[in-house]
Amino acid sequence: MNTIMRKSVLGIAGLAFAGGVIGGPVAAHAATPAVDAKPVAVVQADKPAVDKGKLMPNGTHGTQSRINLDDEQTANVKAIIAATKKSDMNERAAVISIATSLQESKLHNLGHLGDANDHDSLGLFQQRPTSGWGTPEQITDPQYSTTAFLKGLKQVDGWQDMPLTDAAQTVQVSAYPDAYAQWEQQAADLVAQYWNS
């Protein structure tokens, strides 16, 4: 009787094992959702980074200032960068331009401010029609005013390697020649953020 019982138990165990081997993978496969095996293209979302060493070759000078930008100011940053590229000038020129505009107008395209106006200064760079920068309409056009500033910058020997405040002052001839330096870090950050956008 032991032998018969033993054969019966082994037979049942064998059937269970065979059923698991046969039924197991089928059941597992049936429970797994179908996967679409089409090839997937890898898309590189990152744009090339700006060489930050070129943005501030001399580092910053003095205490740095920073302001939060609204949509208008951000649009003016992008306009300055576009004009810089169109003028075939590099990222350093954009840093100098944006820092200059941060100092002169906080990146606002200013019209005539009445009694608060500094003479007849207008626009992003506070350029003056009476000093030959252009008409009021031209000076308040971000593309034109940036191009006019860059034309002046191109005439400064060694502007690429000189401290930002010296390059900006040579073009602008401001009563506060050292004031441009405080905006260099924010200007460089903005160029790094928007140059390739």
Rank of each mutant, 00 (worst) to 15 (best):
M1Q: 11
M1F: 09
T3C: 08
I4F: 12
S8C: 15
L10M: 14
A13T: 12
G14M: 11
A18Q: 02
G20M: 13
G20D: 00
P25F: 09
V26P: 08
A28W: 15
A30P: 03
A30K: 14
A30H: 13
T32G: 06
P33F: 10
V35N: 06
P39F: 07
V40S: 06
V43S: 06
D46Y: 09
K47H: 12
V50R: 04
K52M: 05
G53C: 00
L55F: 01
L55M: 08
P57M: 03
P57V: 05
T60K: 14
G62Q: 05
G62H: 10
G62A: 09
G62R: 09
Q64H: 08
Q64Y: 02
N68Y: 12
T74A: 04
A75K: 14
I81M: 08
A82D: 14
K85Q: 14
M89A: 07
E91P: 03
E91M: 06
A93T: 10
A93L: 10
A94T: 07
V95P: 01
V95F: 00
L102K: 02
K106M: 12
K106E: 10
N109E: 00
N109L: 02
G111P: 11
G111W: 03
G111C: 02
H112W: 13
G114K: 09
G114M: 07
A116G: 03
N117V: 02
D118V: 11
D120M: 04
L124I: 13
Q126T: 12
P129S: 05
W133I: 03
T135G: 03
Q138C: 05
P142L: 05
P142C: 04
Q143M: 09
S145P: 10
T147I: 10
T147E: 15
A148V: 13
F149C: 06
K151F: 06
G152V: 07
K154H: 11
Q155L: 13
V156K: 10
W159R: 00
Q160R: 11
Q160S: 13
P163D: 00
L164S: 00
D166L: 09
D166M: 04
A168W: 04
Q172D: 02
S174I: 05
A179T: 12
Y180M: 01
Q182H: 12
W183K: 06
E184C: 09
D189Q: 09
L190S: 04
Q193S: 10
S197C: 13
